[in-house]
Design a protein around this nucleic acid. Structure first.
Length: 264
DNA sequence: ACTATGTCCTGCGAGC
DNA sequence: TGCTCGCAGGACATAG
């Protein structure tokens, strides 16, 4: 479940390793599922283009190529982007390879195939950037919404980049129960949530993200934020604040973890 | 316009 | 030991 901090870590690692390099050719696996654009279009569009920058918009890794072309990679649940020398054997579930002028390769590996690749121009993402949004705009996002605050946090058209881990962690830090109606939260509560979302994401970025399933960065390294989780996947374990056992329920079909004492 | 639910996909761990 | 089954969930489609 690469979310904003994991995707940012991956994008930064890629930027260090491949910006300035040029795409010589593109190989895409025979399975069409991981492609949002036709394989030929991706291959033809990227071929011969220099990579100027790699960064993140929401949960999407964005390769900025010369002339305004963008190569988008969404990692889905289990997607990895690795940079390797061409002599390293391709691992199973490799769906795409960019062959670079330097001899290195950018590889997209994704066992569960929820990830997606596409080429486009002018991509800005579906929602607002959680690290940039100011408090008034943040509060405005939830006005009149009847859906649980947890669902609203997962809605990428509002904020993009927050997923299941950081939604749960942010709500715990803000002391808000995930099932509360988004539109019924007070201004004070939403201010706390605004702060909590930013703090959690920034802390996680510092620690290289959370490695809960098989997440690794562009160097194949795991993150360390999972050691800091206060609720996520801690069902039955004592709350780190008040020792009350963490509860689990389903919200929006997602496993949702919270402290019944700290979160009201 | 908003909300809820089902679907995709594979690996892994619990339980028998 | 080896099997089945449920679960993990981001984004999108579909239905209400």
């Amino acid at each position: 479940m690469p979310e904003l901090p994991e995707v940012e870590t991956v994008a930064n690692g890629l930027h260090e390793r491949v910006s300035g390099d040029t795409v010589i050719s593109v190989w895409l696996g025979e399975k069409p599922e991981p492609l949002k654009s036709p394989a030929e279009e991706i291959a033809e569009t990227l071929k011969g283009k220099k990579i100027e920058q790699v960064h993140r918009i929401g949960k999407t890794v964005v390769f900025e190529l010369v002339g305004g072309t963008q190569f988008l990679v969404h990692l889905g649940m289990t997607g990895r982007l690795l940079v390797n020398g061409g002599d390293v054997p391709l691992p199973p579930h490799t769906h795409g390879v960019l062959h670079l002028k330097s001899g290195r390769e950018v590889r997209f590996i994704d066992p569960r195939r929820f990830g997606r690749m596409s080429v486009t121009r002018g991509y800005t993402g579906p929602g607002k950037e959680p690290l940039k949004i100011d408090v008034d705009e943040f509060v405005g996002l939830f006005k009149g919404r009847k859906t649980p605050i947890k669902s609203a946090l997962l809605n990428q058209k509002l904020l993009h980049g927050v997923g299941n881990i950081y939604a749960d962690e942010s709500l715990h830090r803000a002391g808000i129960r995930p099932t509360r109606q988004a539109g019924r939260l007070t201004r004070i509560e939403l201010e706390r949530l605004h702060k909590a979302v930013k703090a959690v994401l920034q802390h996680a970025i510092k620690l290289g993200g959370s490695s809960v399933s098989d997440y690794v960065d562009a160097d194949g390294m795991r993150g360390f934020f999972q050691l800091e989780h206060r609720v996520y996947l801690r069902t039955g374990e004592p709350c780190r604040t008040c020792k009350t056992p963490i509860k689990r329920l389903l919200v929006a079909g997602r496993g949702t973890h919270y402290c019944p004492m700290c979160q009201r």
